[in-house]
């Protein structure tokens, strides 16, 4: 198996996009690939310890029909994205880092973040960490 790291640059802070990021991360972890998640802007905001379990809404294109579909999945017991990420971390080599610029922009300190987040790094450290791995931007 190709075990190049998968990097997910997670920018978006709505529950649908956070969920697909968690899905991509956990799928890669199940295959034994290292995963490096880099949290920027609105995604980072969603990882605040006191907000992570909030309703973060959906992308604008969801509309009423999309919202109903997502709510039905939730009601059927689909794990929330932060639980899927916790499972991915438990399963494999999944690291979650906050973007230091975004921390400054949003006035967030490490103590404000959920323990799912492993630390803070700048973009240079991010590129060095992922080497020649693939990057997804969500």
């Amino acid at each position: 198996m190709d075990d190049k790291p998968l990097a997910i640059v997670l920018f978006s802070g709505t529950d649908d996009k956070l969920n697909v990021a968690a899905v991509m991360a956990s799928g890669a972890a199940a295959l034994g690939r290292p995963v490096h998640v880099f949290l920027q802007y609105w995604a980072l905001d969603a990882f605040r310890a006191d907000r992570i379990k909030n309703d973060h809404g959906l992308a604008a294109e969801a509309g009423a029909e999309g919202k109903a579909a997502v709510e039905a999945l939730r009601a059927a017991g689909q794990a929330p994205w932060y639980e899927t990420l916790a499972m991915a971390k438990d399963l494999g080599n999944v690291e979650i880092q906050a973007c230091s610029l975004s921390m400054d922009v949003l006035g967030i300190e490490e103590k404000d973040l959920d323990p799912l987040v492993d630390g803070t790094e700048g973009v240079t450290a991010f590129y060095i960490a992922i080497g020649d791995g693939q990057i997804l931007f969500i």
Binding site: V23, G27, Q78
Partner: peptide
């Protein structure tokens, strides 16, 4: 059963350990 992608694989990979 009843779990959507990728949970069947994730749970199996966890159990396989």
């Amino acid at each position: 059963k009843g779990l959507s992608c990728p949970m069947p694989i994730v749970k199996t990979a966890q159990a396989a350990k």
